[in-house]
Write a protein that binds this DNA or RNA. Structure first.
Lengths: 222, 222
DNA sequence: GCGCCTTTTCAACTATTCTTCACAGCTCTT
DNA sequence: AAGAGCTGTGAAGAATAGTTGAAAAGGCGC
């Protein structure tokens, strides 16, 4: 996770940087708006902490410039918590707003809150999918139907996992082939159908969860 | 979008409710933490605005209870911006924190910011269209009428999706043919009519949403 | 190299969908 | 009121896409 800290006061930048690095973030600094804009166009940051009052280019104008190219989350710092300023910030798509003087601990809490929202934990979130008598344990690589474990082939696992991870979504044949087999697969048109057939046979009563979307591909219904 | 406002002061609840309803939210109220917890277990809210200081059960304890069952976004209101309280709030998975006295306008800005983060699909790119009992889910490729899924043919899906994406717009026969069939279609004049007929038949009660514009083409009324 | 399991290919088969066409119906003009 | 010009409809053959079983090809451990 990489942060960009933008403030004209070195003292403040250093202080935030210390706390941020303590929390395990990688940190870069900019001392004015112009610099911030250039850095944002050159590099990728997971979040920008931006002061409002700065020489050269103020924080709001800098965000406006950055927004032309990037949706990077921004947390604004302002010396005074004027309502006008706050609204101004939200309209630009600023994610949060902290008023100086602030507690560094609270600032880092807010940084954490924004990042946890913009980077939802996909892998941590779901290791197992359950619906009625069907259980798909991604981590353990076990699929059970009514408690009975199924004996699937590697491709069947991969295909099922992909379908379940993208359940309730129309998946085109091309996308399935590309994502499950790899972009460099130039096999027969019927390969996918055949594996769907095998998977359906293995799933028994749950075969109907794999819905054929004629002319498009397939969808797994949760 | 449905909000739950929890505060023991009727005056504050009424004030927030007025602003929220002006912004188009549906609003329910609770006057203490216990009530808030019960309501959250019974109903679905898109966001909860919760005061900290309340009789019976304070805001933090209420959120802790709610969190056992629900991940609903919460915005806390507090009479004093003590740092300890703020951190306490973020650790519970509170999404934002507003200090009293606050400006209602800023509060609604923050509510909007949270909701746009938790419901990213609805405001960014549209994946689903709903109007009365008709639901068109583009991503899942599912069309339901009064909860009942329809079994449409590929062309019916494509045509309906195109019409709904360009709803309330007069679409010429030429444009429809060109965009749905492709610029290189040199088929019969009756092909489009026939598919409109099939689609209308499938849509049942909602057939009349597809309006014939004699001499021009068709329009889907949202 | 052998045997077993998995994956892929292939072609026949089935099911669904698309297009065409003839004609009916509607609307507006003459 | 008749006719021209569009649009709606049902039927049927043509076209397309998906399913399936069988068989060949590929991998991997022994």
């Amino acid at each position: 996770m990489k942060l960009l800290i933008v403030d004209d006061e070195t003292k403040i930048r250093t202080m935030i940087k210390k706390y941020a690095e303590f929390d395990g973030y990688e940190v870069e600094e900019a001392s004015d708006g112009m610099q911030a804009v250039s850095l944002c166009l050159l590099n990728h940051y997971d979040l920008v902490i931006m002061d409002v009052m700065m020489p050269e280019l103020d924080g709001f104008s800098a965000v406006r410039e950055i927004r032309k190219k990037s949706r990077v989350p921004v947390l604004m710092l302002s010396a005074r918590g004027e309502e006008y300023d706050k609204i101004h910030g939200f309209e630009l798509g600023v994610d949060d707003y902290v008023v100086k003087p602030f507690s560094p601990k609270e600032l880092m809490m807010r940084v954490g809150a924004i990042l946890s929202r913009t980077h939802p934990k996909e892998d941590v979130n779901e290791n197992v999918f359950v619906s009625d008598g069907l259980k798909v344990d991604f981590a353990a690589r076990i699929v059970t139907v009514d408690g009975q474990p199924l004996d699937l082939s590697p491709k069947e696992y991969e295909l099922l996992f992909y379908l379940v991870r993208n359940r309730n979504l129309a998946l085109s044949r091309e996308k399935l082939i590309c994502d499950v087999w790899g972009y460099d697969f130039y096999g027969d048109d019927r390969t996918l159908d055949t594996h769907i057939k095998l998977l359906r046979r293995s799933l028994g009563d749950y075969a109907s969860r794999i819905v054929t979307l004629r002319g498009v591909g397939y969808r797994f219904d949760a």
